[in-house]
């Protein structure tokens, strides 16, 4: 079974966000970029499926600017066999990404496609579900466990208040939640080897899809600053303030 894993290049999760002075967007100039954390979990899951002999080939794919090839190389260093880059400088949102990925799914016919449940930049949590709808495949979103048996995927999902298990007919789409696995770090020899693994580049035009965003980004602002608070001298004072000033406990 072939496994397709989609990754996104995003701002590193430890970097403090700065909004541009003209409020047009978040400033990404000279900011450290990395693979989206949920995508790391997706790559790890795909690689583990291969290590267990369930997957025969792991193909990593991304939609984004030229620089996103760094994240494909990371996926290759972590164990993906080859990579596909849908190269575009457009501001791509979920629908455009899902359309491009749907074409890749048509061409590659993976038994399982794994994506992160959301990217930590746009926080949309849409692409996997949209890809499932566009390809007519079932979805197991927010997965904390994936078991492949015969021609089915049994996916345990993190839902509000607990876990839900669903059975999906393969081919299927899975999106990852935090508990699915703990991603490994790439080892130096693997990083060197990854440079020689195949990486093919396509454009949205070649795939016949329109990826530009339909939504107009009117403005981006920093959130309201939190007022710095007060220091209390004792537990008694804290309890008193919470009861009588903030009125959040009784």
């Amino acid at each position: 079974m072939k496994v397709l894993v989609a990754v996104k290049r995003v701002i590193d999760y430890n970097v403090k966000i700065r909004v541009k002075p003209d409020n047009s967007d978040v400033d990404l100039t000279n900011v450290k970029m990395a693979m989206n954390p949920f995508c790391e979990i997706a790559v790890e899951e795909a690689v583990r499926l291969k290590e267990r002999g369930v997957a025969t080939e792991v193909v990593a794919v991304t939609v984004g600017p030229k620089a996103a090839q760094e994240q494909l190389r990371t996926a290759l260093a972590l164990g993906a066999d080859r990579a596909i880059h849908i190269q575009t400088d457009e501001r791509v949102e979920s629908l455009g990404a899902a359309k491009a990925l749907a074409r890749v799914v048509e061409e590659e016919q993976p038994g399982l496609t794994i994506l992160g449940k959301q990217a930590i930049d746009s926080d949309n949590n849409q692409t996997g579900q949209m890809l499932a709808a566009l390809t007519g495949r079932p979805q197991g979103t927010f997965a904390s466990e994936v078991v492949i048996e015969n021609d089915k995927a049994r996916v345990t999902r993190e839902i509000d208040g607990g876990l839900q298990t669903v059975e999906l007919a393969l081919p299927a789409i899975v999106t990852t939640d935090l508990r699915l696995n703990e991603p490994r770090y790439a080892k130096l020899p693997d990083i060197m080897k990854a440079k020689k693994k195949p990486l093919s580049v396509k454009t949205p035009e070649e795939l016949g899809v329109e990826v530009a965003s339909r939504l107009t980004l009117v403005k981006v602002e920093p959130p309201a600053e939190r007022q710095g608070g007060v220091k209390v001298g004792s537990v008694d004072e804290l309890v008193d303030k919470l009861k009588n000033e903030a009125k959040v406990i009784s």
Binding site: E93, S94, L95, A98, D123, N124, N125, Q126, T127, G128, Q129, M130, L131, A132, A133, L134, Q139, T141, F142, R157, E158, I159, D160, S213, R214, L215
Partner: peptide, 23 residues
């Protein structure tokens, strides 16, 4: 924007070929 809403709404959006506004 619960796990139910997040699970199903992007399917509607994609099948109607429209963007979704999340959360």
């Amino acid at each position: 924007a619960t796990t139910t809403g997040k699970n199903v709404m992007p399917r509607l959006a994609a099948l109607k070929d429209v963007a979704q506004l999340s959360e």
